[in-house]
Design a binder for these strands. Structure first.
Lengths: 213, 213
DNA sequence: GTCTATAGCGAGATAGAC
DNA sequence: GTCTATCTCGCTATAGAC
């Protein structure tokens, strides 16, 4: 009976595929933590391999080289954030509330913030493999934020004039990045979430003090 | 005549001392440029040595090791900024105007901004030799800014309430750092100086549009 | 799929000649 | 004061056994 054989084979393949996915995910997580702590340049394949219980050569079975590993980490971490909080809906209010919620949640795992801070600074060098990635990312954050403010303006919920939505987008996103850096260096002296939440106040008629999610 | 001999010797020593100072300064400048471009971890002593026309061993005649070189660079670059624009006077208005002037001037040489961005992100790692340096630096910027706002408040020139001078200090300094990062990645899309100047508007009754210095 | 072994490079730092 | 030579180390990546 060829049908049965087919099914068995497919199940086996599925199990294998799932195991592979899990392996890839756990490598990415370990690598992400280490990149966050010591940067991309400061982290060796040996470190990552040891952290995941493999030899360096064993690790390179899953990712052809170090840059591929970096790209996988960035895609996994940043890609998730974007669609996790409904940040792609085009609804300005949802977007703004989503940003505050993300800010709150990130406080629980500062490694993601560090990853972001460290890698984006390293990526200032045009020769860095993540340079294009971060240029694109910052541009997207700005333009999404601008679109959100414009959407709110259409609904009479934007109160920032004469500051334009475009300028407000720069202000809010820059303040966010800057306060991350300061908070990571001195968590006790900086109220990160409060600062981020308050940064919307001059521009948006929304009560952001409540608990979402 | 012992007097004459003494003078000759002292002149010689002076010439030597001056030459040494110049050598040290030029090494610091080259190292600063390279640290700004590729970070501390990403820059090798060989690179710096080549840039200044020495062998690696020759370079280490002037600085005992790589960390000493980093500290010299930081002291030279950041130490200068502080007293250059009267940022230590205790006069709030001078301080605020000085910050705007520094922002304007830095635009001409982005390497300093890059140096700052890259090294401060690397320094998030507690094991980084500049970790303490940057923790201190950010703290000082915040407290100086807070003192400036408090001074202006005493003179009736602070209009930020209910936002406290301390919160305003976090907001302004964080926005500054964040906009630096964004501007370095996309200079054409971000109006850095305008953003920094405008960041004071909600807090301070000063006309900052004019040209100082 | 994971290993050992190793090639090949570049790093930081030292020793000692000149 | 600056060099050459060298030590020792850690890194990325490859080759090939199991």
């Amino acid at each position: 009976m060829p049908l049965t054989e087919d099914v068995v084979v497919r199940r086996k393949d599925n199990r294998r595929a799932v195991a592979l996915e899990e392996r890839l995910a756990s490598i990415q997580e370990v690598a992400g933590r280490m990149f966050a702590a010591r940067g991309f340049n400061g982290t060796s394949l040996r470190d990552v391999a040891a952290g995941v219980g493999l030899s360096p050569a064993g690790l390179l079975h899953y990712f052809p080289d170090k840059v591929a590993l970096l790209e996988a980490v960035l895609d996994a971490r940043l890609g998730t954030i974007a669609d996790e909080f409904g940040l792609e809906t085009g609804d300005g209010e949802t977007f703004v509330r989503g940003l505050v919620a993300v800010a709150k949640r990130d406080e629980a795992e500062p490694e993601v913030l560090r990853l972001f801070c460290v890698l984006s600074a390293e990526a200032l060098d045009a020769a860095n493999p993540a340079h294009g990635y971060f240029t694109r990312w910052f541009g997207q954050v700005r333009s999404h934020l601008q679109a959100a403010f414009e959407d709110l303006d259409r609904r009479g919920l934007y109160c920032g004039w004469p500051i334009t939505p475009a300028q407000a987008a720069v202000n809010v996103s820059a303040l966010r990045d800057g306060v991350n850096l300061q908070w990571l260096l001195a968590p006790d002296e900086v109220d990160r979430v409060g600062t981020i939440r308050a940064s919307f106040a001059p521009y948006v008629k929304l009560d952001l003090t409540g608990q979402q999610r």
